[in-house]
Amino acid sequence: MAIISYIEAVTMALREEMERDSNVFILGEDVGKKGGVFKATEGLYEQFGEARVLDTPLAESAIAGVAIGASMAGKRPVAEMQFADFIMPAVNQIISEAARIRYRSNNDWHCPIVIRAPYGGGIHGALYHSQSVEAIFANQPGLKIVMPSTPYDVKGLLKAAIRDEDPVLFFEHKKAYRSIKGEVPDDDYVLPIGKADVKRKGEDLTVITYGLSVHFALQAAEKLAQDGIQAEVVDLRTVYPIDKETIIESASKTGKVLLVTEDNKEGSVMSEVAAIIAEHCLFDLDAPINRLAGPDVPAMPYALPMEKYFMMSPEKVEKAMRDLAEF
């Protein structure tokens, strides 16, 4: 078992899946010779050739739409959107087509595609290279949305996504790419899509989050532990469809819940989590459900002080956790 980075886990999963199944292929902008702007597909062009690591024209609706067509003809396309922000021209293909193909054909056709996209801020990317876009897709039955936090989860979930019979959006936090490292087995394993993971056990309060913020919550939880407060950290891993069971179980157990997302607050994935807890756990709660999120402005500004103001951080999470613990 080696310690590798989050992005290396992406590459590893892609390579292993391409070796396992000749129907798996990659398409996207600059994914070939260059290996992607973040280098997620580095070395794959050399290993598998240009037919299976396809540099497409700069046209996102075609990237999604061609992937959809190829999947209906038996392929397992893994499409890369260069940044999650640039998925917008492909939204019609993703929502009107991919999400509905099985349902509208009464199970006659299906669409096993993966769309990978780097999302998230804290990398001086400004409005159009920092966004969290999951909420746009997280009310579309037919889609699955995976947002892993650790290299171990990246590998197991990306492999599961590629083998899934339905369309999966796989959002990778771009700040995690090189800053987050962890142990990843060399062998073949998959993790279940649709299952949250309790990353830390605790009795006093629950933090529910996903992506990079999982690490902020874990860091904060260690600090709180020094003062005798034990926080549970639930990593959603799949933000759609959501693992209600794990949410309800943890919220009922601790009675205090903090929901953290880097996305802006209104209508975020955490709004749904709050509703689930309100519906199922009201009489187990000892405090109002707390949401910690980005401000309700369109997107993350560029200048450092403004970016920090928007961006989630260990300090913000720690403060919110302490406030809740003291409630």
Binding site: V66, G69, A70, M72, K75, P77, Q93
Partner: peptide, 9 residues
Amino acid sequence: PHAAGIALA
């Protein structure tokens, strides 16, 4: 675009 994808396959 689906037609292009099928032809690509």
